[in-house]
Design a protein around this nucleic acid. Sequence first.
DNA 1: ATAGGCATGTAAGCAGTTACATGATTTA
DNA 2: TAAATCATGTAACTGCTTACATGCCTAT
Lengths: 191, 191
Amino acid sequence: MALSHAVLAALLDGEYSGYQLAKIFDVGVSNFWYAAPQQLYAELARLEEDGLIRGRQVMQHRRPNKRVFTVTDAGIGELRHFAAAATRPLFIRDDLAVKVQAIDHLDPAPVIAQLEERAAEAAAKLALFEKALRHLRGDLDEESFLRSGERVGPYLTYLGGCRLEQETSSWCLSTARLLRERAARTQAAGE
Amino acid sequence: MALSHAVLAALLDGEYSGYQLAKIFDVGVSNFWYAAPQQLYAELARLEEDGLIRGRQVMQHRRPNKRVFTVTDAGIGELRHFAAAATRPLFIRDDLAVKVQAIDHLDPAPVIAQLEERAAEAAAKLALFEKALRHLRGDLDEESFLRSGERVGPYLTYLGGCRLEQETSSWCLSTARLLRERAARTQAAGE
DNA sequence: ATAGGCATGTAAGCAGTTACATGATTTA
DNA sequence: TAAATCATGTAACTGCTTACATGCCTAT
């Protein structure tokens, strides 16, 4: 049970189909959980079989029909059980950092380009998260919302996501700049 | 090929045994790559078979002998190839964030405790990384080291790790404080 | 004595990835 | 008319986790 809890948590805020969940995992939940679309269909089938979620057919006019899912009481129970148990350490894998780690033995040019690309992606995600935050808090300012809101979980994880993307962007840019300067200098020295 | 590149990058800075690598992945590399010890032994065997690393037996007096590994030219070639290719997106999985996402449906007490625990771990890691940074730059200040150092890759990834741990600690603490306040208020209202 | 560190693995099972497969509708 | 979006899966393979297995040395 690993992906299952992330799916249950995502389904707390509404009924979603596998396809919709895939998009949520691609943009929103992606700040703390990565999952491929195919995994989600398989996981939804498993969760339904275990009685932790319930599916419902939705007929659509000019689109394929879809099945949307909600968390059952048993599903909430499973989440409570999970939350009370010990948390595993953060699981992180970043190919780009591996490249930076090895940079002194590599051609820096493609790595610099990838750092700048990642910085741009992070900035775009940050903008998205900030939009989501404004949407969640509605007319309230952040402080009042966090004090009196009924559903603050997603808001808090988005706040964490914002920090992560901000730091990512800033680290990528400063690293890229430094590597550029060093590359310029070694080239000048080599001439 | 996923873990393999992380192992190759880690072996660039010296000869290490499986056991030593496991410790490096536990503390140092852990800011951008998670790996279990058993994986490392298997991966080292595979990399040696593929000729990307070379093992050497080291006899020891009052300890079991060990095999230490170095990256071959073919290994460097593989890393260069990897660095020039497209980078996959950050792979992240954080159980603690899943719990926060679902918090409004859960008993907050254990989650608050786990947030504070994670914050303490992050602060400890930060201290470790800062020590590693001081060690790497030796007598130089950071700017000169980054300008003129021969091996800046690990320094740059440690800098990234510091940011991550700092943000983690601060997010966990502010989230825990907020959840504590909310828990106190709902308890007061319930009485 | 006992716990912890050093040192290296195997085996079974589960989870995750990649490639394949289909088909309608909408937008450029 | 081509590409993108909506919509859902299967199958084969690879990678990862958990549990098991061993044994010596050092510090308390």
